[in-house]
Write a protein that binds this DNA or RNA. Structure first.
Lengths: 209, 209
DNA sequence: AGAAAACGGTATCAAAAGTTACATAACTCA
DNA sequence: TGAGTTATGTAACTTTTGATACCGTTTTCT
């Protein structure tokens, strides 16, 4: 890919042209396939990824259960990597591409350098910390206070809104993973929703009504 | 209190003398009593607090249940306030002093100004975001994956370690609040721990063995 | 001292969620 | 086409947690 093309794909948030030039000079452009693992638990991070296109799912895993933390979408970066960039640490989460994605990666040492030189980079970092924190707080509140059926319905509605379609393409098993529960529980609750007329169930997808 | 005394109490992390001078010039020193509320849910924040002495408990509340997010201790600031300082927002948490405390507060506009001018202030902010994020992530993992008895035991052990004493002075009711459950549940589990010889129960405190 | 509040113990019941097991339908692919 | 895989449905059961109620003891406050 040409450098000018990469430039065009960089989030518009980076206003300083000197910064954009540095990003192109030092960054490395990589593409990943669906289900490729970008970051795994325990991995030492010496790079910071910014998603150009596609989506990375960031989650935690304990034994055979996992739970969704958040998604990294276009123009965003991974909180765990950013964190590790400041204080050399290993990741406590997994990052897996949910679709074919293009990612721009930088050596972590630049994260600090740029912060002092470029205010738009600094704003990007603060914005990232802040929004990831809010997201996590939201998840926390939800797990701490809300019963699973409510969380499940919220998840479905969010999906439908995000995709702008009432057809939610996901298996019960994967829904269970997202919410940190089990397949049987999800099937049971969904069947309840169907009887209440809230959804219609099909193999491989759910129609929100 | 004399300004020189305040200076002496500022966290050593603020290395630039110009910054320390600005903090004294623009900051306001306040003292609060135990159980005083510093921040409440829905409150608009136009100040950033740094705890000089004492401790602030930050928690969430829904109806009559609450759950601990973290403590703000000496030299630390409140994540929610910091967050609000960047993006004018209201707090979604409560902050209550657990003991008589001294707090230094600044107008939020300075938070941004200082970040560009003083690198030690910037490092302080990043460190704050980062450590609060990690704490919240820890709480999240715990709530998502661990049964209450395990969380309770962890809480007791952390307390004992922090205070360097096996005598944990807290009521069952307050333990329940910290963990987001109810008094009866805590009493039941603690009694179980006692029968297993893990603790010894007294009125008003718990002896960890 | 006497009342009120705080603290803790415990029994009983209900609800939520997880576990195990088994069955059927649909899809995939050699 | 037929075997293997994936997706879903559902029953029965257990465990965990929460809700309610009532008790006696200790502390606090007037």
């Amino acid at each position: 890919m040409e450098k000018t093309d990469i430039l065009a794909k960089l989030p518009g948030a980076f206003t300083e042209s000197a910064l954009r030039q540095e990003m192109i000079t030092h960054g490395k452009f990589i593409t990943v396939n669906k289900d490729d693992t970008i970051v795994r638990e325990g991995q030492f991070l010496d790079f910071l990824p910014i998603v150009i296109t596609g989506e990375i799912r960031v989650f935690q895993q304990k034994e055979d259960r996992e739970i969704l933390l958040y998604y990294v979408r276009e123009g965003q970066t991974c909180m765990m990597s950013l964190s590790a960039a400041y204080f050399s640490q290993t990741s406590t989460s997994y990052g897996v591409a949910t679709k074919p994605s293009e990612i721009f990666v930088f050596p972590t040492r630049l994260v600090n350098e740029w912060q002092l030189k470029y205010s738009s980079w600094n704003a990007f970092l603060i914005q990232t910390f802040r929004s990831r924190y809010d997201e996590l707080l939201g998840s926390f509140e939800s797990v701490a206070f809300d019963p699973i059926d409510k969380r499940l319905l919220t998840y479905l509605k969010n999906w439908a809104q995000k995709e702008n379609s009432p057809k939610i393409v996901i298996s019960h098993q994967n829904l269970a993973y997202e919410l940190g529960t089990t397949r049987v529980v999800v099937s049971r609750i969904l069947k309840g929703f169907e009887q209440q007329g809230k959804v219609k169930l099909f193999r491989g997808y759910i129609q929100l009504k």
